[in-house]
């Protein structure tokens, strides 16, 4: 026993230094590879299809990317604590439907006060998101069951509710102030969504790096038992993280609803897969404890660029899901390969 510990003491610093070195290498590779890939993609696209470089198209890419960045940063939080959220797309749908229906109901009661109607509608949407997040968090944390199963169940519950409330028909008739003035508002010729996303990303970055909540998330993700023994209220923080994730997804749903102009139960169907893809491309580990919001934002931008490229090159939308599937497997495959090399 004694020999073992001494051996460990001797070996640990070397091992640590080595892994730190390769961690730096890895970060450099991830940081260096992704922007490089994006620049190359932009140049090639610009040469093949001049339409790509028009400002209207670039703004379009940025807007699509910001929805994805938002929801992917929510997914990232759950991934960091070692969880997984499959219900994230269904939350978008449920929020969209709830917001639209409650605004329609409220406008009959308060026909003149648009601002009140809109803020209550937004609150209802956020509330629906929070409810799903709380359910996810409580079942995962208290019963210690696989988050995949739980969120697969809530995925079915949330999208079933959204479809049931609307019977699959889009909900129109929200105040113009919300759909036209807010949904299409531009500041300095950029859609307002971009500013909101930037603000949210900065907030999440601050939360992850400079608050107790963020530190505890990383701690729980890297070693839940150690965190618990060190006095972290693990159960509370797991519930909080799932709720935060669903609230971010709900915010995305509200912004998408404003953009589309109707409450739709089909909204966000692809966002679950894309959010995981963006997070994984951004270097978030599925084993928990690793991930940074700025890299996730880059991953989302990359995915939005690839989607835009496929649209401009007239690749069939059905083929696009194939590409995203391959990208997910490749990204995680590379990550797995690298972490195995680090271990050696």
């Amino acid at each position: 026993m004694r020999g073992n510990t001494i051996m460990e003491k001797i070996l640990t610093p070397i091992h640590k230094a080595e892994s730190r070195q390769s961690a730096v290498m890895r970060r450099l590779m991830v940081l260096g590879l992704l922007p490089l890939l994006m620049i190359v993609l932009c140049i090639v696209l610009g040469m093949i299809e001049p339409k790509f470089l028009r400002s209207a198209n670039l703004i379009n890419v940025l807007r699509n990317a910001s929805f994805l960045m938002l929801i992917a940063s929510g997914q990232m939080m759950v991934l960091i604590i070692g969880g997984f959220d499959l219900s994230i797309g269904a939350v978008v749908a449920l929020t969209s439907v709830t917001t639209a229906l409650s605004m329609n109901a409220l406008i009959a009661i308060f026909p003149d006060s648009y601002l009140l109607v809109i803020s209550l509608g937004v609150l209802a949407g956020l509330g629906a998101g929070a409810a799903v997040g709380l359910l996810n968090g409580f079942v995962v944390a208290l019963m210690k069951v696989s988050p995949f199963m739980v969120t697969l169940g809530t995925l079915s519950i949330a999208s079933g509710l959204a479809l049931y409330m609307t019977q699959g028909v889009p909900v129109y008739g929200m105040p113009d102030l919300f759909t036209r003035d807010f949904g299409r508002m531009r500041i300095f010729n950029l859609p307002v969504v971009i500013y909101l996303t930037a603000a949210m990303l900065i907030l999440i970055w601050w939360m992850m790096n400079h608050t107790k909540f963020g530190k505890y998330m990383y701690a729980i993700g890297s070693n839940e038992h150690a965190a618990r023994v060190s006095g972290v209220k693990v159960t509370f923080y797991i519930v909080a993280t799932y709720t935060a994730c669903s609230m971010v997804a709900a915010l995305t749903g509200i912004l998408l609803t404003a953009r589309v102009g109707s409450g739709e139960a089909g909204l966000g169907a692809t966002l679950m897969m894309e959010s995981i893809a963006a997070a994984v491309i951004g270097g978030v580990s599925l084993r928990g404890g690793v991930g940074r919001v700025e890299m996730v934002a880059l991953g989302a931008l990359f995915l939005a660029l690839v989607t835009n490229a496929m649209n401009l090159l007239r690749v069939d939308s059905k083929l696009q899901t194939i590409v995203i599937g391959v990208v997910i497997i490749l990204a995680v495959g590379i990550e797995t390969y690298q972490s195995k090399r680090v271990k050696r």
Binding site: L286, K318, L319, G325, I328, V332
Partner: peptide, 22 residues
């Protein structure tokens, strides 16, 4: 390759769905 089965089959879901509809 030791990749997480959830991710592999999630990716395969996208691929197979795309193939079936294409």
């Amino acid at each position: 390759f030791g990749i997480n089965p959830f991710v592999v089959t999630l990716g395969m879901q996208g691929i197979a769905f795309g193939l079936a509809t294409t």
